[in-house]
């Protein structure tokens, strides 16, 4: 398992405990007292470390290679998922997956950014960075959901829209803009959940929802910490400082009133236990859908409109 910097002291302690246990088992010497002392210390240290996760550590967790992807949550949360492909225009972008499924016995449309978990899959999925055809497929599926009056659930997890030549030629900006514009008018409930990285416009293009939730250790920002550091201070190495100052974590966004709920993560991060993590997503998702399905079409559009109109901070000068 890839070791994260802030978890090093924990791992060292765990290793020591295991060594002592092995030693006790093999020899006559009884060290159980020392072991239980160390175990107590481990519990205290865990509590201390996991309740004090720094923004940069959250960035590492959000990018963890083993962090559960959209398809893994889809597998846990829904039944009868049928993936649908293609934008009907140019191609099928594997960096975005989407389709229809059954949630608690009712049909829903599910869409998400999709990273790979190994190099081969990452190449197929372009590391979860979509081209315009990905966004156009997503929009096609959202329009279809609207026709059949079923809610839309979006899982957001991307470093950003792919910065490439072909993407520009085919209108990356237009594709993202079109999604923001059209999502604003959808007459069905839209619930968006950031499960990993919420990288800028590429993330927002699946993010104009009635409710927006974030997993505790996910991030959502206008640019990556590395990008911010190189623009602001001309040094991508200062990413850690940028992460601190950019306010990109779930608690930050909650405080700014941009997201609705922080979905708690299992201790040590979502990758430790997908099933338990899916359960806590399930609770929040169900209560969102219950609340939103009480609204009629007009109120849904209106609620979404007001949500986004209210974002922004400024003072009005009195003249």
């Amino acid at each position: 398992m890839n070791e994260l910097e802030f978890e090093k002291p924990l791992n060292q302690l765990r290793e020591k405990i295991n060594e002592l246990k092995a030693f006790t088992a093999d020899s006559e010497v009884d060290l159980s007292e020392e072991i239980s002392k160390l175990e107590e210390r481990l519990i205290r240290l865990e509590a201390d470390i996991y309740s004090n996760i720094k923004p940069w550590d959250r960035v590492q967790l959000a990018r963890h290679p083993e962090r559960p992807t959209a398809l893994e949550y889809i597998e846990e949360l829904f039944e009868d998922f049928m993936e649908m492909h293609g934008d009907r225009l140019y191609g099928d972008d594997h960096a975005i997956v989407g389709g229809i499924a059954s949630y608690k016995g009712k049909p829903v449309t599910v869409i998400g950014h999709q990273r790979g978990k190994d190099t081969k899959e990452n190449i197929k999925r372009n590391f979860g960075m979509p081209h315009p055809e990905g966004y156009r497929k997503a929009l096609r599926l959202m329009k279809q959901a609207e026709k059949f009056k079923r809610p839309i659930i979006c899982f957001i997890d991307t470093k950003g829209a792919y910065p490439g030549k072909a993407a520009e030629e085919r209108g990356q900006s237009e594709a993202i803009a079109r999604n923001l514009f059209e999502m604003a008018g959808l007459t069905v409930p839209v619930v968006c959940i950031v499960i990993g990285e919420g990288g800028s416009g590429g993330a927002l293009a699946l993010g104009v929802g009635n409710h927006l939730h974030m997993l505790e250790n996910s991030t959502y920002s206008v640019i990556s910490p590395e990008g911010a550091a190189s623009i602001l201070w001309k040094d991508a190495g200062l990413a850690k400082q940028a992460a601190e100052s950019m306010k990109i974590t779930a608690p930050d966004l909650k405080e700014m009133g941009i997201i609705d709920e922080i979905i708690p993560e299992v201790k040590g991060g979502a990758h430790r236990d997908v099933k338990t993590q899916a359960k806590s997503i399930d609770e929040v998702l169900l209560s969102s859908l219950k609340e939103l399905s009480a609204l009629d079409e007009e109120s849904l559009v209106d609620q979404r409109y007001k949500k986004f109109q209210s974002i922004g901070e400024f003072t009005k000068e009195h003249v």
Binding site: E83, M84, H85, G86, G91, E133, K137
Partner: peptide, 9 residues
């Protein structure tokens, strides 16, 4: 056709 975005499955 699938590869070129024309089919769902």
């Amino acid at each position: 056709l699938m590869e070129h975005g024309q089919l769902d499955q």
